[in-house]
Computed example of a mutant assay.
Amino acid sequence: MPLKQSQLKKLPSEYFGANIAITTSGVFSHEALVAAIHAIGIDNVMFSIDYPFERTEAAVEFLRTAPLAPADKAKVAHENAERILRLK
């Protein structure tokens, strides 16, 4: 039985933002990072490395030089993972 529009309590995009997170693994593109943040929000993007296929130094340099405010860089670097994975 298909849902009627009145049965949804939120917009579909709001469910997506609350339930989907992505990582930077495999993509060292600042343009792609900014586009991902714009599309799904800063709280849903996490830094990661596709070890052993990516060099750790290159991944860290990618994040270090990302065009993000320090608070946003902290979210991507570790705060989002700590929250989503309940590491604290």
Rank of each mutant, 00 (worst) to 15 (best):
L8V: 02
F62L: 12
R55A: 06
I20Y: 08
S6F: 10
L3V: 11
A32D: 09
A58L: 12
L3A: 13
P2A: 11
L33W: 06
L8G: 06
E82I: 12
V76Y: 02
L3N: 10
I42N: 06
A18L: 01
D43P: 02
V27Y: 01
V60Q: 15
E31V: 11
L11K: 15
F28G: 11
E61N: 11
E61Y: 01
I42W: 02
T65S: 15
N44K: 04
R83N: 03
F62T: 13
E82Y: 11
P70Y: 03
L11W: 07
S48P: 00
Q5S: 15
T56K: 13
I42F: 00
I49E: 11
I84G: 02
A71D: 15
V76L: 08
L68K: 09
T65Q: 14
M46T: 01
P12N: 05
S48F: 06
A58V: 10
K73Q: 14
Y15I: 12
K4I: 08
G17C: 10
L8A: 13
G41L: 03
R64L: 08
E31C: 07
K73A: 09
G26I: 12
A35W: 09
P2R: 13
E79P: 11
E57D: 11
L11M: 14
I37M: 03
H30D: 07
A59M: 05
V27M: 07
N80V: 01
T24P: 05
P2S: 10
L33H: 04
S29G: 10
M1Y: 12
E61H: 07
D72C: 05
V27E: 02
K10T: 09
R83I: 09
R86S: 15
V27N: 06
A69L: 14
S48M: 00
Y15N: 02
D50R: 05
S29Q: 02
K4D: 15
I37C: 02
A74W: 06
T24S: 06
G41D: 00
D50E: 08
I40D: 07
I49C: 14
E54N: 04
E61M: 08
K73L: 13
M1R: 14
Q5L: 14
E54C: 05
P70W: 02
D72E: 15
K10D: 10
M46W: 01
